[in-house]
């Protein structure tokens, strides 16, 4: 059952990656992707951004208008601003509601594709041996432990295998991670200062 063995490893790596990259970061990325799709929500988000810009612009305009000298103009800007702010609040409310709903759904999908999938697989294949160990390698009670809970005696059960993979990942992943970061760091060295740049700065000043 090589494929089952690999499947467990793949699942473990995915789960680990998702957890280290951060659920929030993934959620945010998914949200950005979701809002760039042509849906009602993305329309709302675009409108919200436009409205925000509009409100900022109107605020600046209001500040730039003298209420004493041009009261009519000032009051009209103020009316528009009040209306836009009310609209913006309404829109923000609906976008936030959509966001919460999306987050819940995305969270469920994330859980289902990582931890949930792991649970399902290990439950489904609980009687399947992942691989056999040669007879006599370990004493009987260890054999019993390795096949715990349902796999036939003399084999390694899916639960034990999952546990083992997770333990190894926990140790190895940080090492790989730091290796990757150090390689990236070395590939992208800090741009060396061109000679005489200090004088140039002085001249510019």
């Amino acid at each position: 059952m090589i494929s089952l063995l690999m499947l467990i490893i793949a699942l473990a790596i995915t789960t680990h990656l998702v957890n280290t990259l951060g659920a929030t970061a993934i959620k945010n990325t998914l949200w950005v992707i979701f809002t760039s799709l042509p849906t009602n929500t993305s329309q709302d988000v675009r409108n919200q951004k436009a409205l925000q810009k509009e409100v900022v612009r109107l605020r600046a305009e209001l500040r730039g208008t003298s209420s004493q000298d041009e009261f009519a103009k000032w009051a009209k800007i103020r009316r528009t601003l009040d209306r836009k702010i009310a609209d913006l609040e309404k829109l923000t409310g609906s976008v936030n509601a959509a966001r919460t709903k999306f987050d819940t759904q995305a969270g469920f999908v994330r859980w289902a594709s990582t931890s949930g999938a792991g649970w399902a697989v290990s439950l489904w294949y609980r009687r399947e041996p992942i691989f056999w160990i040669p007879e006599g390698w370990v004493p009987g009670y260890v054999e019993w432990g390795l096949s715990f809970p349902k796999a036939p005696i003399g084999s390694v059960s899916i639960q034990v295998w999952t546990f083992a993979v997770a333990q190894v990942l926990r140790v190895v992943a940080p090492v790989i991670g730091s290796l990757i970061t150090s390689v990236m760091f070395m590939r992208k060295p800090v741009a060396p200062m061109p000679a005489g740049s200090g004088e140039k700065v002085k001249e510019e000043l």
């Binding site: 000298d69 041009e70 009261f71 009519a72 009051a75 009209k76």
Partner: peptide
Amino acid sequence: KKYLEQIEEL
């Protein structure tokens, strides 16, 4: 007069 004009405009 100034404010009256503003009132009429607004």
